[in-house]
Write a protein that binds this DNA or RNA. Structure first.
Lengths: 235, 235
DNA sequence: ACCACAGTATGGTCTGACCATATCAGGGAG
DNA sequence: CTCCCTGATATGGTCAGACCATACTGTGGT
């Protein structure tokens, strides 16, 4: 073990270099959603790497919800910058739940925290509640548990949207997506959803009146009602 | 344009099939962190696809913090299942911040929400505070802004860890990582960090005494102190 | 018992080819 | 002139095969 001045020939993989270059270009050129990246073959030539490496970098960016690749020709073809953190977060949560490295309880608690915060914020900002009302109406017309959960999800995501924080909204949407299966089971187990409906109305009205504390409280109690159905074994 | 029974030859890309297969295998075989996936060539042969497609799937899983690839030979080589949502979240946030699809304010608010919740939870659970104390000591010995922020980050992440929710902790870590640059600038702008230190002591003691509300309040006020330095332009 | 060295399985990269798709550019029919 | 058909073309998606660097494994010699 000689001196400490050893230097690795190569620390980063080629596709990581490509990623760094693309990220640098995004920052320097001020690219935003909607702008196009060079074609794969072109990018490979520009950076002096193979197309495979460029493709692997593209896959990473696509996974992170930063680009969308379209085949064909024309203005819409190629790699276009987008901004869709939602699906990336959803995939991330789903996989880590599958690996049992995250427990449902942790996801539920996170959702509780977010939702309470969002409801309070939405009320304070006197946000528009038409989306919430529409989701509520959808829940009334639901004929199956799946359909009910669909509109329930829309309701709760609408609250997150109304908070005005897109990061919160994206996390909320991902949490709901990754928990969808559990939610459907819970609704089926519950049977009567009238209590949930009353909760929703209370939340909506609190936001409508701009009562932040009441909105947070109503949300918290609503989730307390829903929890036993989600965790039938616990108490 | 004949009848409507047209069937697409292929709706999903090959690497997406591979991803689905791997995910299915994880679920069915109950694989968890530490288990190994088959080698790329072997997987390609098993699934009847090219190695490139397998590699692209691997890149996705790696991006999501689900596998780690090691070259060479032996028990530690190959694709090993891991569970590291942190880096994936960090990359996601950093890129979307760079795309200007997320504003710093949204990240800051999210952090505020999380930290308040975590402090309250940690206090309620009477969590061990030795990690917090250690981080606090590190801040006292810090000679540069970078060093200070380093230990400050450790302090706040320790609170998130103490909440017992790994998802929250992962989000917290990612938020801090993606905001590191701003934090360093803020500390340099602030100069005197004695106020921050007093805040930290107050938070730590509240958690130590199990006073959840006081812990949340102290955290909130601490962040209120730090905000002006983060957004010097606003008021 | 130890060590040096060839063997080998692994991921990382490159090349070149072919396919499917979607637009684009012309040319012919009306 | 307009409309539609058709071939050219640019794009991502996939494949096959090769080579390299790395890191363990086993073997044979000391």
């Amino acid at each position: 073990m000689g001196g400490g001045d050893w230097r690795p020939v190569k620390r980063t993989r080629t596709f990581e270099d490509v990623l760094a270059q693309i990220e640098r270009r995004i920052a320097e050129d001020g690219l935003t959603a909607g702008d196009r990246l060079p074609a794969e073959r072109q990018l490979a030539e520009q950076l002096g790497v193979s197309r495979s490496s460029v493709r692997e970098a593209m896959r990473v960016l696509e996974t992170l919800g930063v680009v969308s690749s379209q085949v064909g020709r024309g203005p819409d073809a190629g790699a276009v910058l987008i901004s869709r953190p939602d699906s990336a977060l959803t995939d991330l949560l789903r996989l880590h739940l599958g690996l049992a490295s995250l427990e449902p309880r942790e996801v539920i608690d996170t959702r509780h925290m977010i939702e309470q915060w969002a409801a309070s914020r939405a009320a304070a900002a006197r946000a528009d509640t038409s989306a919430l009302a529409a989701a509520l109406a959808g829940m009334d017309g639901a004929r199956t548990a799946e359909e009910f959960v669909e509109h329930d999800t829309a309701f709760h995501c609408a609250i997150a949207d109304a908070s005005g924080n897109r990061l919160i909204a994206a996390i909320m949407r991902s949490l709901r997506d990754s928990m969808r299966r559990y939610a459907v089971e819970a609704v089926e187990r519950l049977g009567d959803t009238s209590i949930l409906r009353a909760d929703h109305v209370r939340i909506l009205e609190a936001i409508d009146r701009g009562e932040a504390d009441e909105a947070a409280r109503a949300t918290s109690e609503h989730l307390a009602h829903a929890y036993p159905a989600l965790f039938p074994g616990e108490h």
